[in-house]
């Protein structure tokens, strides 16, 4: 079978999406456990790589691992019964051989989540327990990767991330795989419409009442309460909590103009494409950028979702 990749830059709503999809598929009276969500990052796990590829990733160079990632994804797709969802923070990059890391043959589609990078930086700093400036530098680094340490071994494979806008463009402009892109802000503003479009894109049976219940079961306060009560496995040990605020616009009080400027300078065109630029520029111009929490409508990115496909590309 083939896989729907749940792709996003970190801290862009991926876990929330997994929680809604899990509850939608479960159809249970109770909210699903956050430690048993569908779509875990199987493709980024060293253990999965070693077993599916049949070679020891810990004896392989980062380039050799990258070269074998397309094979891993094909083997995973073959072994996973539908509906197959796999979370990935990897950018859409190519192996040294020139082959795409996420091959067409392994892919049913890409569900891409994008979030205002000004909010990502706030959430990410909290998640990694680092300063805003450190995260801004990381998000502006075109060579950024996760788990990329070369002197020790992680249970995860190296994850090529690129800079924030590079990550977004890599998935949206690749022209090979059908992509359904959703803004985090639209999941917040109108969850039934935004999650509904994702459910349809993934080809799941459509049921509005089921979706309403799934959204309710995965409501932010519930996720946070469950994470605190049951010790959410995906929280970083250094992070105070995984689910922080779940809102849009907290950057206005958390970032200084210098930090906003640094992100706008690095990612302006992509921010503009998703309607994130106007508020940032208003903030920098000193008028506070208006009172509304989300990005203004009427920008180049209208409506809550848009489907990119090979035909459209």
């Amino acid at each position: 079978m083939s896989i729907f990749w749940l792709a996003s830059y970190p801290k862009s709503g991926n876990t929330w999406l997994r929680a809604v999809l899990t509850n939608y598929l479960d159809e249970a009276g109770e909210p699903a456990s956050i430690n048993a969500l569908i779509g875990w990052s199987a493709a980024s796990s060293r253990h999965t790589f070693d077993e599916y590829v049949g070679l020891p990733s810990s004896d392989m160079t980062p380039e050799e691992i990258l070269r074998h990632r397309p094979l891993l994804h094909e083997a995973l797709a073959e072994a996973t019964p539908p509906p197959a969802f796999v979370k990935v923070h990897e950018a859409y990059v190519h192996a040294p051989s020139g082959a795409a890391l996420f091959p067409k043959t392994a892919t049913a589609g890409v569900i891409y989540l994008v979030r205002n990078p000004l909010d990502v930086v706030v959430s990410y700093a909290h998640h990694r327990n680092q300063t805003i400036d450190e995260i801004v530098t990381f998000m502006n680094d075109p060579t950024a990767e996760l788990e990329g340490a070369r002197r020790r071994l992680s249970t995860w494979l190296p994850i090529p991330l690129l800079m924030w806008s590079g990550h977004v463009s890599s998935w949206l402009d690749q022209g090979e795989l059908p992509v359904h892109v959703t803004r985090y802000e639209d999941l917040l503003a109108n969850p039934r419409v935004a999650f509904g479009a994702i459910v349809r894109f993934a080809g799941l049976d459509w049921d509005a009442a089921r979706l309403a219940r799934a959204i309710d079961h995965a409501a932010f306060p519930r996720l946070r309460a469950q994470a605190e009560k049951t010790r959410f496995q995906e929280k970083q040990p250094t992070s105070p909590s995984f689910f922080r605020a779940g809102v849009a616009g907290s950057w206005r009080t958390a970032l200084c103009p210098r930090q906003v400027r640094a992100l706008v300078d690095a990612h302006g065109p992509v921010m503009g494409r998703f309607g994130y630029l106007r508020d940032a520029e208003a903030f920098l111009a000193g008028d506070g950028g208006g009172a509304e929490a989300g990005p203004a409508a009427g920008g180049p990115f209208q409506g809550s979702t848009r489907v990119f496909s090979n035909r459209q590309a």
Binding site: S58, D59, T61, A149, R150, R151, R152, L153
Partner: peptide
């Protein structure tokens, strides 16, 4: 052993070699 782990074992023999040329293992 990866370089990080080896750093903690200062008394180990220096005759060690790399597992592979381009790796810190």
């Amino acid at each position: 052993l990866w370089a990080d782990a080896l750093d903690e074992l200062v008394w180990w023999p220096r005759t060690r070699g790399k597992v592979r040329e381009n790796m810190e293992k």
